[in-house]
Nucleic acid binder design. Sequence first.
DNA 1: AAAGCACCCTGTACGC
DNA 2: TGCGTACAGGGTGCTT
Length: 274
Amino acid sequence: MPELPEVETLARGLRSSLVDRTFVAVDVRWEGCLSPADRGAFARRLTGQTVLAIGRRGKWLRMTLSGGDTLLLHPRMTGQVLLSEEPIEDERHVRAVFSLDDGSKLAFVDMRKFGRVCLVEDPDIILSELGPEPLADDFTAASLQAMLAARRGRIKPLLLDQRFLAGLGNIYADEALWRARINPLRTANTLTAKEVRRLHRAIRSVLRAAIARGGTTLSDETFRQVDGEPGGFSIELAAYGRGGEACSRCRSTIERIRLGGRSTHYCPSCQPEP
DNA sequence: AAAGCACCCTGTACGC
DNA sequence: TGCGTACAGGGTGCTT
């Protein structure tokens, strides 16, 4: 499931191939992936626009276009963005194919149909709803401390709230809390200054490490880099998906619970109960 | 403000 | 073998 490191991996993988390329045709095979869901208007407006820049905000992939528009893509659970020279092996889940002026094709593949592609004039209408970027210079331990001060909910669901902080999903929220040795059930505003500093470091270090590995590809293989290769961070996962296994730090058994409707993995010994 | 739930969706795993 | 069910979860929207 793509989170910040996976979308960053996509943006980096696309940049060298797509910047300065012009869209010459769009084949939307499932109109529901578009917002608004109008394949005719989408194709007419996108065709002829050149990609000026590719970036990321939270879990959104962002392409700045020559006509003043921005193409935003959110992969949600199973969305994949593939630069394909050869046809895709399994065509069933291809939702849209974009043809570029050099003959290359960009495919949006999404088994569960949760992902969305938006062509907008003003991306800030969508992106300004997001919380701070965890890897930005202005996200500091002090700013995190201030953000947590008024929050009386539990820390794990808060980390998943994109309006609070942009880009963390279920995998990296669990990994960050494990690295920081903070129990996911802790009330957010009861973290000590020391714990907040640990959490701040943990969030940034786990995201950077995952980007360096090209993201996380789980056994369900829902994430792929733009060339189809899996991400390599799975081997470094310490908590997520490791319920019942020994904690790599203390050898206690990793617990798996449900929290806020999501599976949550933590070490009851390293991350003691509140 | 916070928590819980249904919903969107489909492939996989499991019990019978 | 095959059928029904639970589960996976990012985000939205609703109720409590």
